[in-house]
């Protein structure tokens, strides 16, 4: 009974599928799908490496500080890093006093309530505060930015396919739209052509416009590529502050597990030796 109905159901589903496949195949041949324009002009992220890459990678605090400077001077007006606290900057090598000063002098203040009137107000940040958001809410963000909401950057290198190389490519990849780009795909008003962006046109104007846009205190030449790379490195850190600790812990755990597993394997071998010996004896 089960088999009888089984075969009927099986024939039904399999038949449906073969029929659908046939229709699909005819459609595919008679009317082959065209690749969307976005695909033709879209480019994969540039091949760029970071010091934190790979199983032995480490953050370069100098670079992260430079990246923080770029973030502060170029990005922070529109993009928040709301999940990061000022105190976290100590991990980049800033002293306690420096962190305090950065928090207190941050151009956007932390929302608070007036202790006397209870009305909404702001106060200078302290290290325990998270970085204040540049816009109070999404509506305010959209209103101030031509209806495009600047994404928060805390997790951006984890929240985009392609990670930090994508961020780097996007920042350093603005070009003029190619001549052969169809009219429909050309950047409209308020949009900017960037082949690394999924639909080619994004609302963000090129943020890093030219060399020496920021002045690095450590003497590094601030080229466009350098700044883009530094801020991408900084954003790797904001997305995964424990990245290096993860790798270090990982090596310790792997080393331990390797030894433990070898011991367990030897133990297994010795426990089974008798049974295997019996097998050999019988074969002989």
């Amino acid at each position: 009974m089960v088999r009888f109905f089984g075969i009927l159901i099986g024939l039904f589903f399999a038949g449906m599928m073969v029929y659908s496949f046939g229709r699909g195949a005819v459609e595919y041949i008679s009317n082959p799908p065209v690749k969307a324009v976005e695909y033709q002009f879209h480019e994969e992220p540039k091949d760029v490496s970071f010091k934190s890459d790979g199983p032995f990678g480490k953050f370069d605090n100098q670079q992260l500080q430079r990246g923080f400077q770029v973030y502060k001077e170029v990005c922070a007006a529109c993009h928040g890093i709301r999940l990061v606290a000022f105190r976290n900057l100590a991990e980049l090598g800033y002293s306690e006093d420096e962190v305090k000063a950065i928090a207190a002098n941050w151009p956007i203040e932390t929302p608070d309530i007036d202790p006397n009137t209870g009305e909404a107000s702001t106060r200078p940040s302290i290290p325990a505060d998270k970085f204040p958001k540049p816009f109070a809410n999404n509506v305010a963000a959209a209103a101030a930015n031509n209806n495009a909401i600047p994404p928060d950057l805390s997790l951006i290198t984890k929240a985009r396919e392609g990670g930090a190389p994508y961020v780097y490519s996007l920042l350093s990849g603005y070009t003029d739209a190619p001549a052969e780009l169809p009219e429909a795909n050309r950047p409209g008003t308020g949009l900017h052509y960037n082949p690394y962006f999924a639909n080619l046109n994004l609302a963000m104007a090129p943020p890093i416009t030219g060399d020496d846009q920021v002045t690095y205190s450590d003497g590094t030449k601030a080229t466009v590529s350098q700044m883009a790379q530094d801020v991408s490195a900084f954003l790797i850190w904001t997305a995964e502050p424990s990245l290096i600790k993860q790798k270090q812990t990982g090596w310790a755990v792997l080393a331990f597990l390797l030894i433990a597993t070898i011991l367990a394997f030897l133990s297994y071998k010795s426990i089974w030796a008798d049974v295997k010996a019996e097998k050999k004896k019988k074969e002989a």
Binding site: R3, G6, I7, I9, G10, L11, F13, A14, G15, M17, V18, S20, F21, G24, A25, Y28
Partner: peptide, 19 residues
Amino acid sequence: MLSQLATAYYFAHFLIVLP
């Protein structure tokens, strides 16, 4: 199309081939 072929076989395998 590939998943249609594979789905066809999947059901065929359990409901037709095995019995």
